[in-house]
Design a protein around this nucleic acid. Structure first.
Length: 599
DNA sequence: TGTAAGAGCGCG
DNA sequence: AAAGCGCGCTCTTACA
């Protein structure tokens, strides 16, 4: 990840043959020919190879061991067939992801090279979604493209070599002309590595114990009912609720009707949400909350979910790297970002393997600490729980208060307990608070802010501007002024949080990128692979899950210790690569699962 | 009959 | 207890 290591890497650009594209085929899915162009340090082609698409895995494999960065249009289209052929890539440039970052980057604002890049609108395409039908298929041989379940994205980036070459050059010129070339390079490398990780994790899948999942469902809901019927335990609880309400026909599944039923029973609520219900002391509340929890489990992660998303003991969600404005990943299908903690026991290593999970304690406040260089905040978090640190330093009374205060500072809350506590942080941590306060001020005025590595927030939309203009007119009504102030405040909280959440996401990407390279260097084990027909990296410890500030690695038992060490070292490395010698640590909570699968 | 919007809740 | 930020998914209801 360091720039010194980058210097020696040669760049190979991959694209489809221009004549294939000209024929109107939906490249690269049905392209026959692939062109690989090697670029020298100045971005000029120094070598060119043309071969059948089936030879691409061999071409990539032949470069293993030499530092090579492969650049291509769109990772979800190029990488899965390589993985299916047992080939992995070390470094890449995803031109679509890179374009999205650079086209919006404030660091290039005003530079003609930046304008030239942003003008290449054909590269501004949204991520591909719902790609499950493509899983495991050799993309280059797929003629039929699209099924009823799959929405092809309406706009595709170009895949031919000429377009890729032109875009790569625009990107290089824009980076060189930017105010922060080193940081942008790091960001693009990390973002692209994230694309590789997402494809690899989807190929590997999360080892999932269907029997354990079914046991949890049965415990809470009862045995699996007939299609369309409600599980027995839900029906029982529903009866309890109706009895307590004194309304034998109350409909618990329709919020408006449930609201009416609650009011008829004398429970004076404005909504049926659980935080409001909890406030009321009525015998119907407890079973109703239980019913809601059951309904949620059934709808979101019940037997239908299991049927659709878990196959052959693997859960394969669809990740969308860069899918959130702040740079966090999104998910599309499978609900990877919302697996309830309740179901965590269903994540179960294969026999002879184990699961190592690690999450960063208080990642966002630590990212804020590092980017603001706030020494007092660094001191409060060094080597300990940051929130406890605040208590020990006498800034707040309890850990809970510390958490409320810190979250309030990052989210911009002004009311209640949080609003009361935030001013204390302003005294104790002036640098950190100045950073988020000024980000909020920029947002309130409609400006843009950037993360540490240079991802820039979007501009507010036309409606927002109109609201401000209307609120500022000499004849603005109180409602106009109110609406404008409210919108300005909303956008200020967004930009306040953007710099923190976005920088934290960059740290997490740097961690992932470094970790996958460390794991790739582990020897293949002589024992059983995770699956008989799995990708090549399933013979060693590999990433299977990532969620904002948490990773899960599936490792052969004999590699558990080295894999855990790799996770820790990658975290330390991510901190150094992003923030240099800033005195901020990123401590991990790391757990090696005790139970492996039966058998 | 099909889509959009809102409610509600899971995750960080 | 939420609040204050960012998401996705399912269900119901409203409306074309």
């Amino acid at each position: 990840m360091s720039s010194e290591a980058e210097a020696g890497a040669s760049v190979w650009l991959l694209g489809t043959r221009p004549e294939d594209t000209a024929s109107g085929l939906p490249a690269p899915h049905s392209a026959r020919g692939v062109v690989a162009v090697e670029l020298d340090g100045a971005g000029e082609p120094s070598a060119r190879r043309e071969f059948d698409a089936s030879e691409l895995p061999g071409f990539v494999r032949a470069r293993a061991g030499r530092p090579t960065r492969f650049a291509f249009s769109d990772t979800p289209l190029w990488y899965p067939p390589l993985l299916a052929a047992g080939v992995t890539i070390e470094r890449s440039r995803d031109l679509r992801l890179a374009h999205a970052i650079l086209a919006g980057a404030q660091a290039l604002a005003g530079a003609p090279e930046g304008r030239a890049l942003a003008a290449a609108q054909e590269w501004a395409a949204p991520p591909l979604t719902e790609v499950e039908d493509l899983r495991g298929e050799a993309l280059f041989d797929v003629e039929e493209f699209g099924s009823e379940r799959r929405r092809a994205r309406t706009k595709q980036v170009p895949h031919d070599i000429d377009s890729a070459l032109a875009e790569y050059r625009r990107q290089e010129r824009a980076i060189a002309a930017s105010a922060q070339p080193a940081r942008l390079r790091l960001l693009l490398a990390a973002e692209s590595a994230g694309g590789l990780v997402a494809a690899e994790m989807q190929a590997a899948g999360v080892p999932w114990d269907v029997a354990e999942h079914d046991r949890i469902l049965a415990e809470h809901l009862g045995p699996r009912p007939m299609e369309g019927a409600k599980p027995a335990k839900m029906l029982e609880v529903a009866q309890e609720v109706r009895a307590a309400l004194g309304d034998p026909r109350a409909n618990l599944d329709s919020p408006p009707r449930l609201l009416q039923a609650l009011r008829n029973a004398g429970i004076n609520v404005a909504s049926t949400s659980k935080w409001e219900l909890r406030e009321h002391d009525h015998s119907a509340v407890e079973p109703l909350l239980r019913y809601k929890k059951q309904a949620r489990l059934l709808a979101a992660n019940g037997w239908n979910w299991l049927d659709e998303w878990v196959r052959d003991g693997r859960y394969r969600p669809v990740y969308v790297p860069g899918g959130v404005v702040t740079g966090r990943w999104a998910a599309s299908g499978g609900g990877a970002l919302q697996i309830p903690r309740q179901l965590r026991p269903a994540l179960r290593a294969d026999p002879g393997w184990t699961l190592i999970s690690a999450d960063v304690a208080q990642l966002e406040p630590r990212a804020l600490t590092a980017m603001s260089g706030d020494r007092a905040m660094a001191e409060a978090g060094r080597g300990r729980d940051l929130y406890s640190g605040l208590v020990e330093e006498g800034i707040v009374g309890t850990r809970q208060e510390a958490k409320i205060a810190v979250l309030g500072a990052m989210y911009g809350s002004t009311t209640g307990e949080s609003g009361r506590l935030v001013p204390r942080l302003r005294t104790s941590f002036p640098a950190a608070m100045a950073l988020v306060d000024s980000a909020a001020e920029v947002g309130r005025r409609g400006g843009r802010v950037s993360t540490w590595l240079g991802r820039t927030s979007p501009e507010p939309d036309e409606r927002w501007r109109e609201a401000q203009a209307r609120g500022n007119r000499f004849d603005a009504s109180p409602q106009d002024e109110n609406r404008a102030r409210r919108a300005a405040g909303d956008w200020g909280r967004f930009t306040r949080n953007f710099v923190v959440q976005g920088t934290a996401a960059e740290w997490a990407l740097a961690w992932l990128a470094d970790l996958r390279l460390r794991l790739a260097q582990l020897p293949a084990t002589g024992g059983e692979p995770a699956r008989a027909s799995g990708p090549v990296f399933e013979r060693r410890a590999h990433l299977v899950f990532f969620l904002h500030d948490e990773v899960i690695v599936h490792a052969p038992l004999e590699q558990a210790e080295v894999a855990a060490q790799a996770i820790r070292e990658a975290a330390a490395s991510a901190g150094r690569v992003m923030f240099g010698q800033a005195p901020v640590d990123f401590p991990l909570d790391l757990t090696v699962a005790e139970r492996a699968a039966k058998g």
